[in-house]
Every structure is written in C-alpha cells, then in structure tokens.
Design a protein around this nucleic acid. Structure first.
Lengths: 186, 186, 186, 186
DNA sequence: TATGAATGAGGGTTCATTCAT
DNA sequence: TATGAATGAACCCTCATTCAT
C-alpha cells in the first residue's frame, strides 16, 4: 500500500470518526504513519487532500449505483436499481456514506466538485422525463424528484447507521417501493 | 438586550454567514462587542455555546413545524401540514436550516442534543401507526417513514438553497403529495 | 517595561546579532520572555513587527542627526553637523546602525518606509542647492551628494564597528572634512 | 554545462530575481533541473553553495575593478580607474551588485569570505600611502579612505538602482572627482 | 553520479481559555 | 459581572537534508 493510499485511508477514517472540522494534519500523519511533509508530495494542500478523498469516495458510490445497470430494462427497473444500489452501498460502506453526507454541505469541499453531475444522475433525469412523457410518472420537476428520492434513501440509511432501527432487505424494498409510488401516476 | 443574547446572536450570524467551521471566539467577541472573558460567564466552553445556538434554532424549527397544528383534523391533513411547515421554514430561514444541517454532522453538537426526539416527531409516529391501523397507509416501520419523508423534504429544500432549482408553492405541494403517495395504501 | 517594548528590544537585538533573515518568532518569544500569541496583540504580522523596529530606529537616528541643528548657522556648519551627528550616533548605537544598514536593502521592509524622506535629508538637499547657487559647492545632483556622503560615513563607521580600525574624534573630523572637500568649489 | 554549473547558475538567478531570503533548495532544484540530492555531491550545505555563488560574484567584481589596470600610470589615474570600474560594474551587473550588497549582512556568507582582502584593495592602500608620502593626499588613515570612498560609490549606485536617480557617465565622473577631491591635498 | 520520495524540525499564525484588574 | 492582555498548544505548511534506488 502506497504512502498516498495510507494518507487517503487515514483521512477518510478521521473524517468519519471525528468529523470534517476536527481533522488536522497532525492526526492524519500520526494515523497514516508518515512524516509531516510527505503529504505535500501528493497533495498541494489540506483542501486538495480532502477534496480528493471526497471525490474518490463519490466515484466509488457512483460505480456502485451504476452496477448492473441495464439500459434495456424498463424505466421502473432501472430507477429502482439505482435506489437499491445506493442503499446497498450505504450498508456495505457506512463510513464512506457518512463522509459524502458530511462533505455535501461543507465549504471545505469545492462547490464544483460537490455539484458535479454524475452519469447516474443524468440517466435518472432522462428516465424520469421519459416516464413522464409516457404518462407513467407525475409531472414533477426531474431535478426535484432526484433530490427527493436520493435524500429520502440517504436519510433512511443514515438513521439505520445511527442505530435508530435495523435495515434489512425487506425494509430496503419497502423504501424503494415508497420512492416509486411517490412519483407513479395513478 | 443582554450580553448573553449579544453573544448568541453574533454566533448565529457568524455560523450562518461563514459556516460553522470558521467561527472562532475571536470573531464572536468582535461581532458581539464583548470582552474575551465574558463568554465564560454564560457558557463553559465553545461547545456549550454552539450547542445552545443549535438548540435554540432547532426549537425555532420545531415551533414552525407545529404551527397551526390541529389534532382534530384528519391524519392526512396533519401529516401534510408538518411537511409543508418544514418547507416553509426552510424558505423563510434558509441559513437556520443550513445551521441545523451543518450541525447534524458536527462533533461540536452533542449526540444527545442532535438525536432529541421532538413533539412533532412523536406525533408523526403516532399518526402513522394510527393510519396503518386504519389501513390507509402501507405497513412500513413508522421510524423509517419519518426519516424517509423528513430526509426527502430536507434534501429538496437544501438543493433549492444550493441553487439547483427554485422552490415555489406549487413544487412544495407536489413534494408533499409525493411524500403522501409514497406511503398511501392503494 | 511593557511587553511591546520587550518584543521590540528582543527583535532589534536578534536582527543585529544574527541578521534579519534568521530572525524567527520562536527566538523573539524566547528572548522577550512572552508567549507565542502575545506578539499579535501589538503587531499584525512579523513583517509589521520588523517594519516597526526599523521605523523606530530610523526615527532615533533622525533625531540624533537633527540634534542641535541651528538653521541660522552657515551652510558648512549645518552640513558638517549632520555628518558628525550621524557618526556619533553610529558610535553610540552600533546595533541600531547595523539594523538600519541591514534593512536598507531588504524586501522585508516596505519600500515606502525605506524610501521615506526625512527632514534632515530635505534640509540637506536645500542647503546643497543653496550652496551651489552661492558658488561654494560644485554642481553635482543634490540627491547624489546626499547618498554619496551618507554612504561614505556609514561605510566608515561600519568598518570601525567591524574592527577594521578604531574611530575617534580626530578621524571623524577628518572624514567630515573629506566629505566637505568632496563637494567644495575651489 | 555540468550539473554543478547548472546549480550555480540557477542559484545566482534566483537570488538575483527574488532576493537572497526567498531562495530555497526546492526552487533551485526546479530551476536547475536536477534531483534534490544532487546538490550534495557538489556542496555540503546550502551555506556552502551560497558562499560559492558569492565568491564567484565577488571575483567577477574584482576582475572588473582591476580591468585595464596600469601600474605605470599615475596614482590619481589608477585610483580613479578603480572607482570608475566599480561604478561601471554596478551599471552593467546591478543584480550582482545587489547580491554582494545583500550578502554583506547575511550570516549565510562566512565572515572570512566577506572580509577577504582583494588585490584591488591592497593596491589601493599602497597607492594611498604613496600619495600621502608624496604630499598629494591628506594624511587620513588609508583604511578609512578605502572604506569611505568605496562606501560612497556603492551607496550612489545602489541609490540609482533603487530608482532615486538615473546614473550616467557624467554623474559617474562627478562622483569620481568628488572622491578624489575628498582626499586631495590642497 | 544522479535521483526524488520521505523526513521532521521549524516556520508564522490562530485559537480557546485564563486571570489580574 | 466585565474586561482584554497574555498564554502556549496546535494549526497548516516549508524547508534543508537523507538515503534507498
């Protein structure tokens, strides 16, 4: 494992364990087992380091969301797959999800990075528009629908991570169904 | 206005203007126009100060959510009112919502405080259970339903605050309707 | 003696002993016997501190140069008095002279401060112009004459401070005479 | 061009461009296009490197001062030639002069190196003693005379470099004449 | 000889907190 | 109660230097 990976890993864990605000270089160095100056061989500043951690984690999430994506299947199947994959990711990588959630509204992570549109979001918006054209989905702004459903699923998995309740496949399917029904045209 | 209020007001404004991370005592003193030591007559530490600000803001939110609450009206009306009030609050006090959102992931704010159950949440859970008993709502865990819908509405208003789209009464009603349909029994 | 004075004094001594470049806050704190943050109660940055030390020292020099200045006496007497006073200052405050000399060409001290024209310089230039009008001084650019003679006297006293030779009143008068003769009209 | 020369050249340029203080090994490596460790094959430390650059520049100055030196010509011509050559050097190599000037007060450059007596200085002292023996120069200590005149000329050229006035051949000759008259016996 | 990743002491600066007034 | 000068640990970052390759 390279020094760079050590640093990224240590940063990720520290952000997740103690929050973005309290992450200091001193702690990162101690946890990663590298010298104070080493970081600057890989990252030009603390901000860039945090941004990189965020970006790589966001990419990991995106890859999971897009897993097994089949553009040939029905709109409903595709959209539900996205939601299901996000939930699965959250269960498999709770730390990473926590990180994304923590960074989502932090000025420390550049707005550009935070507001990047990902393929999955673009596809989702396109599918929603298509579904609306076909009359199987109510005429809500696709961007609103995306934030609504991703916010819903994130809140649920975060609550389960926080220990409010235990999440299993049955509940996940209930949540997916709820999201679908939210927009489905009668 | 007492010194204590000066300090709280200055803290809220600073958090809201420059983000929780960059708020320092030095800046609070300057803005509040009090001496450096004065704060310790009212708050034992920075953590306690931030917790107080958070709590007061959370109370403000709770008051708005409970506004015009009529226990005599139908379950649907009561639940939709909660969601509508949350959205209205977000539009009226975007910075305060941001504060609450920022504190959700901050170690500064004690877990106990963050996870407080409020009357509105308790009422919501009771109403959901009732609705399920009446067969007008699907049998999803009430705690899941609460996090799902509050997460959904928060994500939408935050997205609008971040500038992804503009929120108006029409969209709010669409969102409320979506949340309702998500759980409604066919 | 106030903390501010402690800091200024320590800075002056450190610059003179180890050179402007190697002066660090750590050393200043240790020498002045103050805490690390104390400096920022008086100076907004290291640069401002150094500039202040320079300015106060330059003012001290200026005051010595202008000592016993009598505008009623002859041009020759006035000019020679300036030169003599500069030499006396250098003997009395060798550290301060070293400081001025070290800062004179350092980018650390603001150009504005370094290039300030002082009353003594202005008076000197006026006297030279007058002397040239009266035909008792050769027609050299007054600014050149000022730098030439002050550079000459500074170099001599620095050399004596460095131990090349010992400076006494006799030599000082010889130097003054040399400076005068340099510009005197035959 | 050898690596050693690359390093020396890069160092000189950096000192000249950004000042002695802000020159770091990192910048030297980048500019010279060599690896970080390479320098230690040629110079045991940064101090030695800077000393070498200083020495080579000082040698360049000495060579210019001694240019066209004719031991057979009159004392006056020889002395004036030294001064003229120093001024010409300053005009041709302002940055190198600044380097020498900056190093005069830098602890990086060893005292031994800084206080080296050069042939031109030795010759000058001998010529002054001779002139005094012949009664054409006043009986000032030769060491004082050397520092006085070299200090004078340096101050003038530095002032011109700093932009106080523009130096041309006419002014240079005036300065030379002033220096001469300063010591000439009536 | 040449490299450059790694080092960690030290740089200037900010901070929450204390305490004499 | 109110002050704000003083503190020094901790902050992010740069540096000259080392050493395995």
């Amino acid at each position: 494992m390279s020094k760079r990976d050590d640093i990224l890993q240590a940063t990720l864990e520290l952000i997740v364990e103690h929050g973005l605000q309290s992450v200091s270089f001193t702690k990162i160095f101690a946890k990663a087992g590298v010298g104070a100056g080493t970081i600057y061989n890989y990252f030009s500043s603390k901000e860039e380091l945090v941004n990189t951690v965020y970006q790589e984690t966001a990419d990991l999430l995106e890859n999971h969301i897009m897993a097994n994506h089949d553009p040939e299947s029905s709109i409903e199947v595709q959209l539900k797959s996205f939601i299901r994959n996000m939930a699965k990711f959250a269960l498999q990588y709770p730390k990473q999800l926590e990180l994304i959630s923590a960074c989502k509204h932090s000025p420390y992570v550049s707005a550009i990075l935070r507001q990047r549109t990902t393929p999955s979001v673009e596809i989702t918006m396109r599918l929603i528009a298509e579904a609306q054209a076909q009359g199987i989905m109510s005429n809500i702004d696709p961007r609103v629908a995306v934030h609504l459903s991703s916010g819903a699923i994130l809140a649920v998995v975060q609550a389960s991570i926080s220990g409010y309740f235990s999440l299993d496949d049955v509940i996940i399917e209930q949540v997916i169904e709820a999201c679908w029904k939210a927009f489905a045209q009668d």
